[in-house]
Structure formats: structure tokens, C-alpha cells
């Protein structure tokens, strides 16, 4: 998922660099405020661990090929979201500066796409509320796959948005979006299984390492920042993609335009079935005639509320036994 300088325009790259720098400063200040600076040696060595783990490939069943871990959710699960984000960002910076993996100007995009979307968004929203160690193997695997897949998919959405806003590649945003999300669905499942496998091993061998007091003490207050970040990111993605979908014709429309001289197919070609389907959609949709950007934002807010409500309900159910007074 490493973005390259070649596909970014200067304004998009600079904006992403500034946003990533802001997130890094916020993470550093937060760790300092929580007096967790003594975690630096652990974070440093953990960064090196993730780097080394990325070099060890695992076999992808049935394909004959192999893959490797990214490690965002794993780091967040082991260190907490902010420390995990900072650690993954440092790995990305070293990958860029030492191994020329991803460009210098694209570093901000890569930190946001791979670091923030996994450790600051997917982990607090889809991992932490659903899983508390010790947990069964299936639960650890299921939640890891969910969080990693959604984290990588969000990253893929960001890659599409950044590429489309840059306008360097001529590949239409819609097609690029489908390509990226399709590929990252498979990668996300692999990443989730790999993350779950490591977490299960650690749970069996050294369970104390999975229950850092810091992760518990952050509680509800600690969720607020990442949740706001997610809301902003979701709105940006939804609004941006809807805007692009409305302003730039996709490949199919472009082909039709070339063939027929008009972006719309002639009305005579519309079948009775499609007319019926359109009428049914009109009757059942909440916003039958709407502006694309507005609909994108409303849709994202609805999904956000749904996911938020679902995770809140699940975490309340899970928390119930823990609230019993200890005698």
C-alpha cells in the first residue's frame, strides 16, 4: 500500500505531510502527558520487531505465493493506539529513508493510510470494544480479521482519494477504488489471520503482555480522539469520492461518450424492466433526488452512527460482569 511520490501532486503531498506531522506531534504529546515516555525503549524495540516480522513471509494457501504483515493493529493491541501509531510511523519513516520504500513527499500519505487508519481508527473502533483478553481463539481471530480488514480498506479508500485528488494517473477514480478495495480485502483477511496468530501465541505464552494497564486506563476518554479522527476521515472520504464520482466521468461513461457522442444512452434503449427497477428504487430510497456529495456525507454519518451504536452496545454487554464489585 506504499504510495509513491510519482502519483502525488505537490499540494496533496504537502497537505498529507502536514496532517501526518500534526498526528505525530499529538501522539508524542499524549504519551508525554500520560507519562509513558518510559515506554520508549519498548516502542523502539517493538518497531524493530514489526520490521523484522515484515521480512518473514507466510504462505498464502492455494496460491503458491506468500505475504507479510503490516502490523498496525498488532502494535496498537500490544502498546495502545497512540504508542502503536507512533511506532508504526517510525517504521514507515525508516523504510522510506533507509530502504527508499515509498517517497519522502508521500511519507505523510503513507503514515495516514497505514498508521492512522489501522492504529487510530480500526483498533479503537473495531478491535478494542469487541475484544478483551483472555478470549477464545475464534474470537481473537474474528476480531483481528474484522479490525485489520476494515483498517486496510480505509487505507485503500485514502489511497484512492489522494491519487484522485492529485490527478496524475488517468485511471478513473471509480475503477481505481474498486481495484484497491478488492485487493485490500484479501490482504486485510491475511493480515487479520496473521495478527490473530501472533496474539494467540502471546496469550498462551505471556498473557500479561496483552493486558497493559495503559490500554485499560485510557477507557472511554481515550476513544474520543480516534473516534473524532474517524468521523473526519469518513466524511472526507465520502464527500471527496462522491464529488469525484459526480465531476469526473468514469471509464464506462467515457467509452459511451466516445461511441455515441453523448454521455447518456438513448431513452429508446431503456427496457421496461429497468424502468420498473428505477421506479422501485425511487419509491424505496430515503433521498430519491439528491446531490452526490451530500448523499455521501449523509451515508457516512449513518454508517458511523450504526457502527458506533453497535460497538457501544457490544462493549456494554461485555462490560457488565466486570462492573460487579470485587469482594
Amino acid at each position: 500500500m506504499h504510495m509513491s511520490d510519482a502519483l502525488l501532486s505537490a499540494p496533496v503531498a504537502i497537505a498529507a505531510d502536514v496532517a501526518a506531522a500534526g498526528l505525530l506531534v499529538a501522539a508524542a504529546l499524549r504519551l508525554k502527558k500520560e507519562s509513558r515516555e518510559n515506554m520508549v525503549p519498548l516502542m523502539g524495540v517493538m518497531g524493530a520487531f514489526v520490521f523484522a516480522a515484515q521480512m518473514v513471509n507466510f504462505a498464502i494457501p492455494g496460491t503458491g505465493s506468500s505475504g507479510h504483515i503490516v502490523g498496525g493493529v498488532l502494535l496498537a493491541a500490544l502498546l495502545g493506539p497512540w504508542a502503536g501509531f507512533l511506532t508504526l510511523a517510525s517504521v514507515l519513516i525508516i523504510q522510506c529513508l533507509v530502504f527508499a520504500d515509498g517517497g519522502l513527499m508521500a511519507l505523510g500519505c503513507n503514515i495516514i493510510n497505514m498508521g492512522a487508519m489501522t492504529a487510530l481508527v480500526a483498533y479503537p473502533l473495531f478491535f478494542k470494544p469487541l475484544l478483551r483478553f483472555p478470549a477464545s481463539g475464534w474470537k481473537v481471530m474474528g476480531v483481528s480479521v474484522l479490525a485489520c480488514t476494515l483498517g486496510l480498506e480505509l487505507g485503500a479508500c485514502m489511497v484512492t482519494l489522494e491519487t484522485a485528488l492529485s490527478g496524475i494517473t488517468a485511471l478513473p477514480a471509480g475503477k481505481f477504488f474498486l481495484l484497491m478495495t478488492g485487493i485490500h480485502l484479501a490482504i486485510g483477511v491475511g493480515e487479520g489471520i496473521a495478527t490473530g496468530a501472533v496474539l494467540l501465541f502471546v496469550q498462551r505464552s505471556r498473557p500479561a503482555l496483552l493486558m497493559p494497564d495503559s490500554a485499560r486506563s485510557q477507557g472511554k476518554k481515550g476513544m474520543r480522539g480516534p473516534v473524532i479522527a474517524f468521523a473526519v476521515a469518513a466524511l472526507a472520504i465520502a464527500g471527496g469520492l462522491a464529488f469525484l464520482a459526480s465531476s469526473a466521468p468514469d471509464g464506462l461513461e467515457w467509452s459511451i461518450e466516445r461511441i455515441t457522442g453523448s454521455a447518456d444512452l438513448a431513452a429508446t434503449h431503456v427496457s421496461a424492466l429497468s424502468t420498473g427497477a428505477a421506479a422501485a428504487q425511487e419509491a424505496t430510497s430515503i433521498m430519491p433526488d439528491y446531490d452526490n456529495s451530500f448523499a455521501g456525507i449523509v451515508g457516512a454519518v449513518m454508517v458511523l452512527i450504526l457502527v458506533w451504536g453497535l460497538t457501544a452496545a457490544l462493549s456494554r454487554r461485555r462490560r457488565k460482569p466486570a462492573t460487579r464489585p470485587i469482594e
Binding site: 505525530l24 506531534v25 508524542a28 504529546l29 504519551l31 508525554k32 515516555e37 520508549v40 525503549p41 516502542m43 523502539g44 524495540v45 518497531g47 524493530a48 520490521f51 507512533l86 511506532t87 510511523a89 517510525s90 517504521v91 519513516i93 525508516i94
Partner: peptide, 11 residues
């Protein structure tokens, strides 16, 4: 931030 540079050097 000092924390970040220390982290980078540690990694």
C-alpha cells in the same frame, strides 16, 4: 518532538 526522534533512533 524529542520522543519521536528518540523512537526513530531506537528503532
Amino acid at each position: 518532538p524529542r520522543l519521536l526522534s528518540t523512537q526513530l533512533l531506537m528503532v
